[in-house]
Design a protein around this nucleic acid. Sequence first.
DNA 1: CGTGACCTTGAGTAGCCTCAAGAACTGTGG
DNA 2: CCACAGTTCTTGAGGCTACTCAAGGTCACG
Lengths: 256, 256
Amino acid sequence: MFSSRPLPECGSVPSDAQASLQELKIACSNCNLRELCLPLGLHSRDVQRLDTLVANRRRVRRGGALFHAGDPFVGLYAVRTGFFKTCVATEDGANQVTGFQMAGELLGLDAISHDHHTCDAIALEDSQVCVIPYSQLEELSREFVELQHSFHKIMSREIVRDHGVMLLLGSMRAEERLATFILNLSRRLQARGFSPSALVLRMTREEIGSYLGLKLETVSRTFSKFHSDGLLEVNQREIRVLDEAKLRKLVARNQF
Amino acid sequence: MFSSRPLPECGSVPSDAQASLQELKIACSNCNLRELCLPLGLHSRDVQRLDTLVANRRRVRRGGALFHAGDPFVGLYAVRTGFFKTCVATEDGANQVTGFQMAGELLGLDAISHDHHTCDAIALEDSQVCVIPYSQLEELSREFVELQHSFHKIMSREIVRDHGVMLLLGSMRAEERLATFILNLSRRLQARGFSPSALVLRMTREEIGSYLGLKLETVSRTFSKFHSDGLLEVNQREIRVLDEAKLRKLVARNQF
DNA sequence: CGTGACCTTGAGTAGCCTCAAGAACTGTGG
DNA sequence: CCACAGTTCTTGAGGCTACTCAAGGTCACG
């Protein structure tokens, strides 16, 4: 059904550079995520101006927290390898996964507003992040127009993404939500050089459900339905997209 | 039940300055929204540095669009008077209200990411906005640290707000959603000098429903239930909060 | 005063949730 | 290597919330 060779980790660096990366200087200009991450859109000669900014890395073990809601805000984090979820909670225990972040994506943007984090960021696999001290980012982006613009675009993109999730949560049914989710994951993995059709989910059914506003049983049932309809091959967390066109049709259904 | 004197418009300027404002120079330093709007957090001596930035106003009639999804991005808009909704749509006609904006709130942040707007902004009453040309905002915020920081906070605050809506849409039931909505409106009106208990809704039941992920009938029924439970007085679009404590208890219910 | 938009309420139903049981998988220690 | 515990996933049965469809009321406005 699936080859026994384990699929590469979602957030890992594609194979070519994997072995040598650890020895390289920590620097955006060396990083093969520069097409996705904060340097997005910067001219290659400008990227090295970021190297002073991003000087530290941090490791987070699977299940560990990069930060918790309430923690003081010191900096943003760029996922280097691994996979995270962010979730918000109310005092009474209600919990909502607000996003899943993979290599090249930024964490911590919510914290700028109140100088402390407003959500938890939990690693779903052993991960590594680049630390971007916020005051230095502000300073550098004052003298470096392209960085300023790039950073604004990243924040704006997060707002647009959130609006998409609101659309999903507010007006789609279970099948549409899950199809949207799978296609989104697929697209992001593809942008990182992985197969868009063979995915390994890093999160539980419950976490998917929380993100999509569904219960875990509904997620499981919907996966089973997609399986029996021939849209997906589902084997626990290994998913293979068999009929992307039909998945897309589900997303762009005509409700009226 | 309600006094026959019309309540002041949600987004209007509190009475003291209303008559003379039109004659004043368009300037943040003259504006009585400066505690809420872009100048938020700036020292008063700094606010006049914004005056060159915000030079134009635009009027939008009730029902008219400030911008549509797809329109090229030229600038942000600060609501001066009136009331807006923003909504995103899919090709197939599904539609989701992503927010309601009143005086002092910014519109258009989503457009930075792709240089064109990604949602529609529709005026729900005759409104007036200040135009903030984006390139000038970037320029000024490079030489004006506090503005830079202020602007970042505003974007971040929008992200935090969106996460709150995701929590609402993903894990609350109809009564909790509507209670959250009413309390949020109440708080924002209070911050603008209006009564926190006597509100006039600017939007239809359908628009509320779209924002909250409910059908208009459900919104209407829930209002009726709140009415018969003594939480609200409901008379079409005139709402009076009778028991704020019970409303709050609904929001912070213990689900587990 | 008539028209159209908006709101309310009722009856019946669909979709998702809850509760429950068991299977599959993961990791640990012997 | 296997046994065991804990976690995660699947599937079924039944129930409830919010939806759909429908009818009538209210309000604003020409």
